[in-house]
Computed example of a mutant assay.
Amino acid sequence: MFARSALTRPFAAASRACLFYTTEAAPATPQLLLRIKADVKDAMRSKDKERLAVVKGILSDLTYLEKSPQAPEKVTDSVIQVLIQKSIKRREESVSNFVAAGRAEQAAQENKEIEMLKVYLPQAMTEQEIEDEVRRVVKEQGATGAKDMGKVMKELGSLDPARAPKKTVSDTVKRVLASL
């Protein structure tokens, strides 16, 4: 029928030769990100537009973070959880503004979205747990006053910011060191 031209054979061989193999493993995808993506699919299937908008908002914030100059080297569950906490904080500010403006319906909608976002966060440490941890580190470091705050905060850097917000930890360290 059709005769094969001499030109097609080299391209076929070249296409097989262009396979690249790497020995590097693909970076592990955070479990929380996989869960969020699965929730997007579930919301689409169930036609839950409110939940879909909230979950897509998380993915949008994550994409924006990855493209920003302050992007972390590696996206982890903790990074995603901090991002969600920031989103919750923005919505809480919106709730207070809506309440002040007498727009209860919009405030209720924001509260509903906050509850949808809280599903993705781990159980936060209580004030007492944070204070106990701060007192332990202060004792280990031998801190005697406010001048030792840097040493204490550096040691407390290992606390998960999703469970213990840095602002809360910092305030607790100031209070504990002031009481010494």
Rank of each mutant, 00 (worst) to 15 (best):
F2R: 13
A3R: 13
R4A: 12
S5C: 14
A6C: 09
A6F: 12
L7M: 14
P10Q: 10
P10W: 09
F11T: 11
A12W: 08
A12H: 09
S15E: 15
S15K: 12
A17E: 11
C18L: 15
C18A: 14
L19M: 13
L19W: 12
F20R: 15
F20N: 15
F20A: 12
F20Q: 15
E24Q: 14
P30R: 05
L33Y: 06
R35M: 06
V40S: 03
V40L: 05
V40C: 08
V40T: 06
K41M: 10
D42I: 08
A43M: 05
M44N: 14
M44W: 09
M44P: 02
S46R: 09
D48L: 00
D48M: 04
D48V: 00
E50A: 12
R51S: 07
A53N: 06
A53P: 03
A53G: 06
V54C: 04
V55L: 04
K56V: 01
K56E: 12
I58G: 02
I58C: 00
L59Y: 01
S60G: 10
S60N: 12
T63R: 15
Y64Q: 13
L65C: 05
P69H: 14
Q70H: 10
E73Y: 09
K74F: 08
V75R: 03
V75S: 05
V75G: 05
D77M: 01
S78H: 00
V79E: 10
V79Y: 03
Q81L: 06
I84N: 01
I84P: 02
K86H: 10
I88V: 15
K89C: 06
E92M: 09
E93G: 13
E93W: 07
E93T: 12
S94A: 14
N97E: 14
N97I: 07
N97F: 08
F98C: 08
F98G: 03
V99R: 11
G102N: 06
R103M: 09
R103H: 10
A104G: 11
E105P: 04
Q106F: 09
A107W: 02
A107H: 03
A108G: 07
Q109R: 12
E110C: 08
E110R: 06
N111S: 11
K112L: 07
E113F: 06
E113M: 08
I114E: 00
M116Q: 05
M116L: 11
K118C: 02
L121I: 02
A124W: 02
E127D: 15
E127N: 15
E127C: 05
E129I: 05
E129H: 06
Q141A: 11
A143Q: 00
A143R: 01
G145H: 07
G145P: 02
A146S: 13
K147S: 13
D148E: 07
L156Y: 00
G157R: 01
L159Y: 04
D160R: 03
P161F: 04
A162G: 11
R163M: 14
R163K: 14
A164H: 03
A164G: 05
P165F: 06
P165K: 07
P165R: 07
K166T: 09
K167A: 13
T168R: 08
V169E: 01
S170D: 13
D171C: 02
T172F: 03
V173N: 04
R175L: 13
R175A: 15
L177P: 03
A178Q: 13
S179D: 10
L180A: 09
